[in-house]
């Protein structure tokens, strides 16, 4: 009993010392973990950049199980963390519940735009627009006229990438063939670089010479195999050009880091009750250009893509969003 009392006493002291860190922002990562070289890592980078620039500190946690989604949100909110960012649509149901319990806490959720709540900022990305541009680049860089797409888990979000990519490729070269593969139907598909490599080889044997990987950790295997086999690849979410310099044609950027950075910077002044659509017009998505892919993107390609980008922003080109009707006009 005395042992237990010592434990509880120590815990209470601990609780008091932690409570001193009131109003720190918090970020809760999805099951993929914060070092997925992709989506969650981008969120982590945005948070870290904020911490480095302001000298502030933030709370963070990588959950282990589904039941922890609500728990982590509630525990951070109870301790006064504000604002709280959650990454991924998996948090939608949990956030819907918890945000109502803490009307004075501000929340932001990424990849969700269907919730309602005065204290929620929803941030959705127009991945189809960015994918359209890299699809154009892929078709223009391809010599065989066949380009590939390797998705992670077979969910509508990834089909949204695939559909935008196919539309872009067909826009640049109406005769282009787009081969599409999904790695799997379970969350393990996000982290299976070996299978990513196998799919890459299979697509190469079907003639693909540019392959876009939208597959989290699996994509690393795609990029690696493409480099080994001497074909081009396209990275996703973060700028992955440097991973295999000269072999990664470009990366489809999804600026989750900026979104998190903005939320943390606004702190308690964060505007909520809004749904932000991060597309080409507000630099939420795009493609990467740096010293690693200088030689791969010709001036002609660049002009064509920039023109298309301007037209999308102006509304002259409408890229079909797979998720609006769960179908794709081209494939």
């Amino acid at each position: 009993m005395t042992l237990m009392r010592t434990f509880l006493g120590a815990a209470a002291t601990l609780a008091i010392s932690t409570a001193a860190a009131l109003a720190d922002p918090a970020v809760i990562f999805d099951l993929g973990g914060k070092f997925d070289k992709s989506f969650n890592e981008a969120a982590f980078n945005g948070a870290t950049r904020w911490a480095e620039e302001t000298g502030g500190s933030f709370l963070e946690v990588e959950i282990q199980s589904e039941a922890q989604r609500e728990q982590a949100l509630r525990r951070f909110a109870e301790r006064g963390a504000n604002p709280i960012v959650v990454t991924g649509f998996g948090y939608a149901a949990a956030l819907d519940t918890v945000s109502k319990e803490f009307p004075d806490t501000k929340f932001a959720i990424i990849d969700v735009n269907w919730l309602e709540g005065e204290n929620i900022r929803q941030i959705a990305f127009a991945e189809h627009e960015g994918s359209y541009l890299v699809g154009m680049l892929a078709a223009m860089a391809s010599k065989s006229g066949t380009v590939g797409f390797i998705g992670g888990m077979d969910i509508p979000l990834i089909s949204k990438f695939a559909c935008g990519y196919a539309q872009g490729a067909k826009a640049a070269n109406p005769d282009a063939t787009v081969i599409q593969n999904m790695t799997g139907t379970t969350p393990a598909a996000w982290n299976d670089p070996v299978k990513g490599g196998e799919l890459t080889r299979a697509q190469i044997s079907q003639g693909a010479d540019v392959i876009f990987a939208a597959a989290g950790g699996t994509g690393l295997g795609v990029l690696q195999t493409a480099a080994d086999e001497g074909v081009l690849s396209i990275g996703v979410d973060s700028n992955q050009n440097h991973l295999h310099s000269g072999s990664v044609l470009t990366s489809m950027l999804k600026r989750v880091d900026n979104a998190v950075y903005d939320v943390f910077s606004a702190a308690e002044e964060l505007e909520t009750g809004v749904t932000l659509s991060m597309g080409l017009s507000n630099a939420g998505v795009g493609f990467s250009l740096d010293e690693h892919n200088d030689a791969l993107i010709t001036a002609e390609m660049r002009t064509a893509v920039e023109a298309a980008s301007a037209k999308i922003i102006a509304g002259e080109i409408t890229v079909h969003d797979y998720m609006s009707d769960e179908s794709c006009p081209v494939n």
Partner: peptide
């Protein structure tokens, strides 16, 4: 089992329009 549940959730049981399988 994992593949079967994944397939059923993505193709059959999913709420139309929702991204969450």
């Amino acid at each position: 089992a994992a593949a079967l549940i994944g397939y059923l959730l993505v193709e059959v049981l999913k709420v139309p329009g929702s991204m969450d399988p």
